[in-house]
Computed example of a mutant assay.
Amino acid sequence: MEETVKAPPRRTELQMARSMCWHCQSEVTGEYFCDRCVKVQPLSKESDYFSCLGLPRRLSIDAQELERRFYDMSRAFHPDFFHTKTDTERMISLGNSALLNNAYRTLKDPIQRAEYLVGLEAGSVKDIRSAPPADLFEEILSLQEDLESYREGLAEGPSDKLAGLRAKLDSDRRSLEERQRELESKLFALFGKWDALHQREDGGAAMRADKDAVLKEMREVLSNRTYVRNIVTDVANTLESN
């Protein structure tokens, strides 16, 4: 059965790329389509992924609501519905669809969602520390020495020492995986703190200071998690190579 494009709800308060319709110059204020000429309107490339899907900048998201919003908007903008339209309309539908897909992929994953929000509010978290978290410093140094010894032992062939190193590395990997889960639990607890700030009515400098404190803590947890995850991956790849 051929699917038809249904008119999307009006006054969605989405950030559009233009304040006037590109086709008839009528005012557009957050509608998917122009009220006058019914031409599709481009979403602003400067809008963030939350506003792109009509969501507030909160970290606890209803997965079903997120999916519903995504599919509702995707049906409206899907390029298949614009193959008989003008080049401009086809380009807009492709651009809108790409933006929606990126937004949905990012926001449906809680870790990516947190990284994205911290990036919006406080700068990128991609510059991960080069040193281990303080409480894991000695453990990580010892593990890295064991990794080097294990790699050297692989070239020399099987031995009791190599088997012992492998067993120790596997145990350390499981320990670090547990540490990663603990960091993720701590991160998810911070989701509640961040979202609770949006319920407050005081605002102003006090609100900004509290937001900055939560963002700083989230950034630290995300940084530590990424460092630990990278070490876990390194150990797993080394063990799987033999």
Rank of each mutant, 00 (worst) to 15 (best):
E2L: 08
E2H: 09
T4Q: 10
T4I: 06
T4C: 09
E13G: 06
E13F: 04
L14S: 04
L14I: 10
Q15I: 13
Q15N: 12
M16Y: 00
R18S: 10
M20Y: 09
C21W: 03
W22I: 08
W22H: 12
H23A: 04
S26I: 01
G30S: 05
E31V: 05
D35I: 02
V38T: 10
P42A: 07
K45G: 13
D48P: 11
D48A: 05
F50M: 03
L55P: 08
P56W: 02
R57H: 08
R58T: 15
D62W: 01
Q64M: 13
E65I: 14
L66D: 07
R68P: 04
R68A: 15
F70Y: 12
Y71M: 13
D72F: 04
M73E: 06
M73H: 04
S74V: 10
R75V: 09
R75Y: 06
H83C: 13
D87E: 14
I92R: 06
S93T: 07
S93L: 06
L99I: 15
N101P: 01
Y104T: 10
R105D: 14
T106P: 08
K108M: 15
D109W: 03
Q112S: 15
A114I: 05
A114L: 03
E115T: 14
Y116D: 14
L120Y: 03
G123A: 11
V125Q: 04
I128D: 03
R129C: 12
S130G: 14
E138W: 00
L141P: 03
L141W: 01
E145L: 10
E148N: 09
E152R: 14
E152A: 15
L154K: 08
A155R: 11
P158V: 06
S159K: 09
L162N: 06
G164Y: 01
L165R: 09
K168Y: 02
R173N: 13
R173L: 14
R174C: 10
L176E: 04
E178F: 07
E178H: 08
E178N: 14
R179P: 04
Q180G: 15
E184N: 14
S185W: 00
K186E: 14
F188N: 11
A189M: 06
G192M: 01
K193H: 02
W194C: 11
A196W: 00
A196V: 10
L197C: 12
H198K: 09
Q199P: 01
Q199F: 05
E201Q: 12
K211H: 04
K211F: 02
A213T: 03
K216I: 00
K216E: 11
E217R: 14
M218F: 00
V221E: 06
L222N: 12
R225S: 15
R225V: 03
T226D: 08
Y227G: 12
I231Y: 02
V232P: 06
V232K: 08
T233L: 11
L239C: 05
E240Y: 02
